[in-house]
Write a protein that binds this DNA or RNA. Structure first.
Length: 440
RNA sequence: CGGAGUGUAGCUCAGCCUGGUAGAGCGCCAGCUUUGGGAGCUGGAUGUCGCAGGUUCAAAUCCUGCCACUCCGACCA
């Protein structure tokens, strides 16, 4: 993509409405624009990141045996009356009426809808387990939206639902999601730590919030250092094998949010292993038994020919929130530092002197060759001063900057800069190409 | 939902107290000079001063009502 053609309205100054760093940087980098309170337009740069995050989530869900589908944003009120939540949910649910005066709502979540699908489509225990998910926009009419996409009213969520014959089988589904979540966040360069969460009326220990550590996080969290240092991606996961040992490894060590923090227990951890940090919730997994399947009569026939109410769980990842969360976890004074896996482009190709014949030829050639190597390239071909270009590229935070200028070209070299470390290296054009092509 | 605040150019903001021709910096456009970390000079364009009433000869400015947005708190992917 040529930057001269790309819609990326960057801002030099911090917009007054933005308070936290991810919100400021997303506005300044031209990723989003606010439409109304808690509702945003995703401009091309932001949309690219959203799509890449979504894709990682999708790949890991698929790997865990979860099947993608797509449910509507608008739901009928009747289903929510069946579960009893239509009246319980309160003002956070956006209620609307269609032209026939039928009560509808913009879905804040999808337990009712998926349960309805399930009960009409699945009859036998032999079809279990079923793990289903979709990635769809949600609307929750928050009293006070804030922090940009970190707490919007409209947000993109991946929500999965599991259906099993009994509690033991449901735990296996839960464990699959537990492990899939660890991998999902790790692939985005995040340290996500599962922390025990409120389980509601069902009780038990089957609910975890996945919290990433970020200096500017909203809540205070406490955990054992080993949790931060586990290498999640080191081994492949066999989702058909028993995952309990992996879950146990994570849940046996201390990890708590401020609300659940017990200083006495925390104090028993050796001081060098105690981590106190700020955290952002990016995922939440939950086993809730028959809470929806019982009132909505989602049953299957078991081996004895009896109807059995299925056991369910739901599993959410805030996809749009992750965009902000990743920035909170990865930025510096100059701007965003995208992890390679979610960057909107792989390489920033900077022509320091557009209009100069040698620079234009060299940069144009690199632009073609980098794309042919399978890389997504943002080519800054604007007639701006070098300082503006450097500042823009640091702001939008692409992992690599390949800088083509008249000074270097005289000796046949270009400069390759790694955004995350700031390390710069002068290379011949071919060497730079080879280096980057290896990343494609 | 309780408390506080803000709406003036694309962005950041001044002007309001004390009513009298709509402002600055950055950005944008044109030209020239520059060019390796947000360049310089010259010229130019850009506004229902959030909306609606009211007071007044005269309202961005004073009064009333409304709307939107932000912040703090209680609640949440």
């Amino acid at each position: 993509m040529r930057l001269s053609q790309f819609l990326m309205p960057t801002l030099r100054e911090n917009p007054s409405e933005a308070q936290i760093v991810s919100h400021r940087l997303m506005l300044r980098a031209g990723m989003i624009r606010q439409s109304s309170a808690g509702i945003y337009t995703w401009l091309p740069l932001g949309f690219r990141v959203l799509k890449r995050i979504e894709q990682i989530v999708r790949e890991e869900q698929d790997a865990a045996g979860c099947q993608e589908m797509l449910m509507p944003t608008i739901q009928p009120a009747e289903l929510w009356r069946e579960s009893g939540r239509y009246d319980d949910y309160g003002k956070e649910m956006l209620r609307i009426r269609d032209r026939h005066d039928r009560e509808m709502l913009y879905g804040p979540t999808n337990e009712e809808l998926i349960t309805d699908i399930f009960r009409n489509a699945v009859r036998s225990y032999k079809e279990l387990p079923k793990l289903l998910y979709h990635i769809q926009w949600k609307f929750r009419d928050e009293v006070r939206p804030r922090f940009g996409v970190m707490r919007g009213r409209e947000f993109l969520m991946k929500d999965s639902y599991s259906f099993d014959i009994d509690a033991a089988a449901a735990r296996r589904s839960y464990n699959k999601m537990f492990v899939a979540y660890l991998r999902t966040f790790a692939r985005m360069g995040l340290k996500a730590i599962p922390m025990a969460a409120e389980t509601g009326p069902i009780g038990g220990d089957l609910s975890h919030e996945f919290i990433i550590l970020a200096e500017t996080g909203e809540s205070q969290v406490y955990c054992h250092r080993d949790l931060v240092e586990f290498d999640v991606l080191a081994t492949e996961v066999d989702y058909e094998a028993d995952l309990q040992p992996i879950v146990d490894k994570w849940t046996s060590l201390y990890a708590a949010t401020d609300e659940k923090h017990d200083p006495a227990i925390f104090a028993q951890i050796p001081e060098s292993d105690r981590v106190e940090a700020r955290g952002i919730e990016v995922g939440h997994i939950f086993y809730f038994g028959t809470k929806y399947s019982a009132p909505m009569k989602a049953t299957v026939t078991d081996a004895e020919g009896k109807d059995v109410v299925v056991h369910m769980g739901s599993y959410g990842i805030g996809v749009s929130r992750l965009v902000g969360a990743i920035i909170e976890a990865s930025h510096d004074d100059a701007g965003i530092i995208w992890p390679d896996s979610v960057a909107p482009f792989d390489v920033a190709l900077v022509n320091l002197r557009s209009g100069d014949a040698a620079c234009d030829a060299a940069a144009g050639d690199l632009y073609t060759k980098l794309r042919n190597a399978g890389l997504e390239v943002l080519y800054d071909d604007r007639a701006e001063s070098p300082g503006v270009k450097f500042a823009t590229m640091d702001l939008i935070g692409l992992p690599w900057q390949l800088i083509v200028g008249p000074r270097g070209l005289k000796s046949g070299v270009v400069e390759l800069k790694r955004r995350s470390t700031g390390a710069k290296e002068e290379l011949t054009i071919d060497a730079a190409l080879a280096r980057l092509a290896a990343k494609g």
